[in-house]
Simulated assay, not measured.
Amino acid sequence: MFKKCTEVRQWLSGFEGEWMFAGGWAIDLHIGEETRHHEDVEVAIFREDQQALYKTLKTWDLHIVEEKELKRWEGENLTLPVHEIHASSQEGHHFEILLNEQNRRRWQFRRDPSITFETSRMQLQSEQGYAYLNPEIVLLYKSTHTTEKDEQDFVHVFPYLNEHQKEWLKQALMHHQPEHPWLEALLY
Rank of each mutant, 00 (worst) to 15 (best):
R47W: 04
M122V: 09
T79A: 08
S126I: 04
A52C: 05
S114Y: 06
E34N: 10
Y132M: 08
E67I: 12
F46P: 07
L99N: 08
M122A: 09
M20F: 01
Q102P: 01
I115R: 08
L57E: 07
E74H: 15
E39V: 03
M122G: 12
P135C: 01
P113Q: 11
D61T: 10
Q108P: 03
R104E: 15
V65F: 05
T144E: 15
L133C: 10
E96T: 07
H30K: 10
E33H: 10
T116G: 05
F21K: 05
P113F: 03
R72H: 07
N134D: 07
E74Q: 14
Q90L: 11
P81C: 14
T79M: 13
K68M: 13
E148R: 06
Y132R: 07
L53W: 05
K71V: 14
T116W: 00
V155P: 00
E148G: 05
L53H: 03
G75D: 00
L124T: 09
H83F: 12
Y130Q: 15
E76K: 10
H30E: 12
E101A: 04
F154L: 04
G32R: 12
S89G: 08
D150H: 13
A87P: 03
T59P: 05
E33R: 15
L139A: 04
A131Y: 00
D112L: 12
E151F: 04
H38I: 02
E33F: 03
H145V: 08
K68F: 12
Y132C: 10
D61W: 03
W25R: 00
P113I: 06
D150C: 04
